[in-house]
Design a protein around this nucleic acid. Structure first.
Lengths: 149, 149
DNA sequence: ACTATATAGTTCTATATTGAACCAAATGGA
DNA sequence: TCCATTTGGTTCAATATAGAACTATATAGT
């Protein structure tokens, strides 16, 4: 396979990834309460899995969205009582985003709603090497992430 | 690995896919002329690679977006002179989307602009099994596509 | 200490996206 | 043929996204 063909395969790869991203997002959002988007869930999940009390800017960078987009997402979460924004004691310009009890249970319930779909997929893909797939994709993701500038 | 762990891997898979989708979209759009989005390119590419003269509804279904979103995308392409919308001789309610010369060359130029990035990636991932990856992802995509209802 | 510059976050504005309502043409019974 | 229903597409309204300008605070250089 020559370089041009390789490039074609990579193009096809990004194409598949884009389609799956859209399909999985739609599926996931259909399991969330009305008015909530994947972005809302993702922030809550990040606060739980990575670190609570992050600043808005760190969150924006983690999700690779502009900081004003994160402001908007956080204001939605705050209005729904799922996070609290407190001043950052280490930096007067900055804030910290803290999960509330309601935020924690919202995230748990969202995962609960999604789990049946994941388990069904796992059953239908018995023997499929998801772990290997994730490993390979993580390599590509790390490359793109580093190339971004 | 039990079912719960499998579900976790699948969750991680969609997570990676979402991130790569966003990164690759941003990269790609940075190579397009100002004011054009991936969606615009994708429609032009589809008309060339799949079939010219498709109806807006068929295009909307192909890209899995609501038909009013496709109306909006097409009006942008039409305003830029990259496609023409003609009445569908087979159905008075419907239209056909035809590529113009300008649309064809726009698509070719976009690919030309992107190619260096793809070739660089191909070089840096010498020996990486992109084809296998695409095959696996296509399976997942087909599954999600069928599950959508 | 003083000033220039950089950083965190918000606001403003413009465009994108999408559900719902709508219109027009087509289809399918009676 | 007539009317009810379905289908293709647009319009309207509400929300999402993001670039640019702005405010306030922090940092660096002198």
């Amino acid at each position: 396979m020559n370089k041009q063909e390789h490039a074609g395969q990579i193009f096809a790869l990004f194409n598949e990834i884009g389609i799956i991203s859209q399909l999985s997002r739609t599926l996931f959002e259909s399991r969330l309460p009305h008015g909530f988007l994947l972005q809302h869930f993702s922030v809550l999940n990040h606060l739980i899995r990575v670190k609570n009390g992050q600043t808005p800017l760190v969150l924006a960078q983690a999700f690779q969205v502009p900081k004003n987009s994160m402001t908007h997402t956080l204001s939605g979460l705050e209005k729904a009582g799922l996070v609290e924004l407190k001043p950052n004691p280490k930096d007067g310009r900055s804030k910290q985003v803290w999960l509330t009890e309601a935020g924690h249970s919202f995230r748990d319930q969202a995962i609960g709603k999604l789990m049946p779909d994941l388990l069904e997929l796992a059953r239908d893909f018995e023997g499929f090497d998801f772990t290997g797939l994730v490993t390979q994709l993580a390599e590509v993701r790390a490359y793109l992430d580093a190339a971004r500038d």
